[in-house]
């Protein structure tokens, strides 16, 4: 079936069986491999994307349900030369080590900061609880998000 959606702000169309996982559609025909697969069963969160602004596990969403909807992946947050404050803080504060959980973490954090501009630590931990990281111990991730919130509040350029 033909599916139209908005991907990182741009209209896209693809032809796909409706039950294909959004994760595979993104990584395959849509050509964005930033979204990762760590478990394929909704447990690790490395495939987290925003669907109409809400974080979802792309490994659990069939592409057929994305008709007419807006999807944001890590590629939509910023570019190498123009990193978002959140991305920059993940680098500076040590929020990314191996980096495989990072795209999903960033998306969950982005969703949080859009909702809550000044989250306290428990709120940050709560918002990231669906994203597993085996490298960092989470502390530097929490710190990265907290710092990014600060920068955003200070009105740093986005």
């Amino acid at each position: 079936m033909k599916i139209s959606l908005t991907l990182n702000g741009a209209p896209r169309e693809l032809d796909s069986a409706p039950l294909v996982r959004l994760l595979d559609a993104l990584r395959g025909p849509l050509g964005l491999t930033g979204t990762k697969e760590g478990c394929g069963e909704g447990e690790c969160g490395s495939c987290t994307v925003l669907l109409d602004g809400d974080p979802v596990n792309a490994c659990l969403v069939p592409i057929g349900q994305c008709e007419g909807r807006a999807i944001t992946t890590v590629e939509g947050l910023g570019e190498m030369a123009h990193l978002s404050p959140l991305q920059r803080c993940f680098i500076d504060e040590g929020g990314a080590q191996c980096g495989i959980c990072t795209p999903g973490m960033l998306i969950s954090a982005e969703a949080l900061l859009r909702r809550v501009p000044d989250p306290d630590e428990p709120t940050i931990r709560e918002a990231l609880a669906g994203n597993l990281c085996r490298c960092t111990g989470y502390q530097r991730i929490v710190e990265s998000v907290r710092r990014a919130a600060e920068l955003l509040r200070e009105g740093a350029a986005r």
Binding site: L32, T33, G34, T35, T73, V74, E75, L77, G78, E79, M80, L83, Q87, R88, F90, I91, A96, G99, T102, P103, L106
Partner: peptide, 8 residues
């Protein structure tokens, strides 16, 4: 870092 936070 930059490559990792952008999905590149």
């Amino acid at each position: 870092g930059a490559a990792k936070v952008t999905g590149e």
